[in-house]
Nucleic acid binder design. Structure first.
Length: 554
DNA sequence: AAGACTGCCAACCGCAAGTGG
DNA sequence: GCCACTTGCGGTTGGCAGTCT
């Protein structure tokens, strides 16, 4: 920011420009406008002056006329860009302030790569600036193996997700939220699926489910839109209905305008990103049920079929959480008050696996990993920590306990059975955990063993990020029950009484974590509904693994 | 000291929405 | 409704500067 290309680009200072600032160095392109060769490359101050004068006289707009009226040998687009990014008044120059950086992170967690919209919330800043800042940040953090978003932002997003759903759902109970609008937390999961598709343990492999059907469900969800990493969630600007979801557009759009965006934005590329293909001749009805089945706990069986545990949603309803509204007043969003002074220091708490380990070829680029990626990785990290903690604490309690060995052993043994069958996108959970562990320490300058990794994390954790007793309390549930993780809560049901005991503890843990209001919702839901524990398991896992202090909860 | 690497920035390009005839 | 044009947006590229090895 400190310098402009105008002065340095051609090695020609603007002050060095000679009599004809418009034809200074022969830097012309073949492209012409009406036979006039248009200049490209860095702007000179003389050109700037011309443009400024023009805008003063004629105002902004009609950029193509600039060249005609002023003789400036620049195309309209170039003029507009120059004006918008450099010449227009009230532009704020210089590095982003910490407040601005925090705001950018927050906005990006909610908007994705909507630079222009983000710029609207940063007076004096241009979309280009924000974009450049973000891209640099991505690169930096990716290289450092850090998540893009600090945990506070993750938490905030999740909380807002819940809040938004409560608002939109009106008197809906939590059951309804999960049953009918189960794209709340599962949305987060869904997005994680994309962002972490090869390391996601709890999304069943669904060979018969089209990407479109999967998307259908979540395209209308807030989380998907908000957390959808840039490349996917809105590849192109919004257009009218396309043929991709012809059967849904009419139904869904009425309730979810954003769906129009998704159905176009989430096209082939998105499907490819998910590593799934579109079935031939998708049946809309099947789509609908299948899509929800994905998140409602249907488990893929070894033969590729599904268990019957997934409820069928008759009434598919897409709602638009408030903060999803493009016109939402962001001033109403939660502030970043909970953010520690330095985002970077917080980010360091949750180490992301190195790109090479967490993502495989053909999958989403790490660049596209977004907030949910961070959320999920946080979950993994904490799970690892918890495993370790419970490991030590329970070593003597249960002979032959599954946790007696290393985390790695857990992955390969007790988690193995169901994990293998529940592997997402063809990846087994065991491989996931292997990846998780190995990835965590695979960085050349990080410890390689899971234990060392855990310890290193514990050492590096800020004081306010240490595991709460509540979180630790939940850990043994996951491990000692012999489940691959909490996401496989369905197995608890299958194990009868074991589940009851586990559920009680689980519920208490959740109650502690979520607070009374939310936990009561959860309890009610668990007590009186047919919702599968699988569904809750997805959410509870996320909640359980959130490294937040209770004081941060609403 | 020199090359490699990274950060930062400006600008271009392609696409799509918006608009007016 | 169609078409041409303008405008806006997001992705990408290229180059300079600073830092690291």
């Amino acid at each position: 920011m400190g310098h402009t290309k105008t002065e340095r680009g051609n090695g020609i200072s603007s002050e060095d420009q000679t009599a004809s600032p418009l034809i200074d160095d022969g830097d012309f392109e073949a492209a012409t406008d009406g036979g006039v060769a248009l200049k490209k490359g860095p702007w000179t101050s003389a050109e700037d002056a011309i443009l400024i004068n023009y805008v003063k006289k004629h105002g902004e707009g009609n950029w193509n006329a600039v060249q005609k009226h002023s003789g400036l040998l620049r195309c309209g687009k170039s003029c507009r860009l120059r004006w918008a990014n450099h010449l227009r008044p009230n532009l704020k120059k210089g590095a982003f302030t910490q407040e601005e950086e925090e705001l950018i992170v927050e906005l990006h967690s909610k908007m994705g790569n909507k630079w222009a919209r983000m710029a609207a919330h940063l007076p004096g800043r241009t979309d280009n600036e924000i974009k450049n800042y973000w891209n640099t940040r991505i690169k930096r953090r990716q290289r450092a193996g850090l998540p893009l978003y600090p945990p506070e932002v993750c938490m905030q997003a999740l909380q807002e997700s819940h809040t938004a759903s409560a608002v939109n759902g009106g008197d809906k109970g939590p059951h309804d939220i999960l049953q009918n609008d189960n794209y709340e937390i599962p949305d987060v999961v869904f997005d994680n699926l994309k962002a972490n598709q090869n390391v996601f343990p709890y999304v069943p492999e669904l060979p018969g489910i089209s990407a479109s059907s999967m998307l259908m469900k979540d395209l209308g969800s807030s989380q998907f839109y908000s957390f959808m990493p840039p490349t996917i969630y809105c590849q192109k600007r919004l257009r009218g209905p396309t043929a991709f979801f012809p059967d849904y557009s009419g139904v869904v759009k009425s309730e979810c305008p954003l769906f129009e965006q998704f159905e176009d934005g989430m096209s082939n590329k998105a499907a490819q990103s998910f590593g799934v293909s579109f079935p031939i001749g998708p049946d809309p009805a099947a789509k609908k049920s299948q899509s929800f089945g994905v998140f409602q706990g249907s488990h893929s069986l070894p033969n590729g079929s599904f268990s019957a545990s997934d409820p069928t949603l008759e009434g598919v309803k897409f709602e638009l959480p408030s903060f999803q509204d493009p016109e939402t007043d962001f001033s109403n969003w939660g502030t970043l008050s909970c953010l520690p002074p330095l985002l970077e220091s917080v980010d360091a708490f949750i180490q992301s696996p190195p790109p090479s380990s967490g993502l495989e070829s053909g999958s989403i680029s790490p660049l596209n990993s977004g907030l949910l990626d961070a959320v999920f990785h946080e979950a993994k990290t904490l799970s690892s920590v918890k495993n370790h903690a419970s490991d030590k604490s329970s070593n003597s309690s249960t002979p032959g306990d599954i946790t007696e060995s290393s985390d790695f052993d857990i992955c390969k043994t007790t988690r193995g059975k169901c994990a293998e069958t529940l592997s997402p996108m063809g990846h087994s959970a065991s491989s996931l955990f292997s990846e998780c562990i190995s990835a965590s320490g695979s960085s050349s300058d990080e410890p390689s063993s899971a234990e060392t990794f855990t310890e290193s994390h514990q050492k590096s954790e800020p004081a306010d990020n240490v595991l709460t007793p509540e979180i630790q309390k939940a850990a043994p549930i996951q491990l000692d029950s012999g489940h691959s993780d909490t996401l496989f809560a369905s197995n608890w049901l299958e194990q009868g009484s074991d589940y009851d005991a586990d559920q009680t503890v689980m519920t208490d843990a959740i109650a502690t974590l979520l607070g009374d209001d939310l936990s009561s919702e959860y309890k009610n839901m668990e007590a009186g509904t047919s919702i599968s524990s699988q569904e809750w398991g997805i959410g509870s896992c996320l909640w359980n693994n959130m490294p937040f202090e209770m004081s941060e909860l609403p």
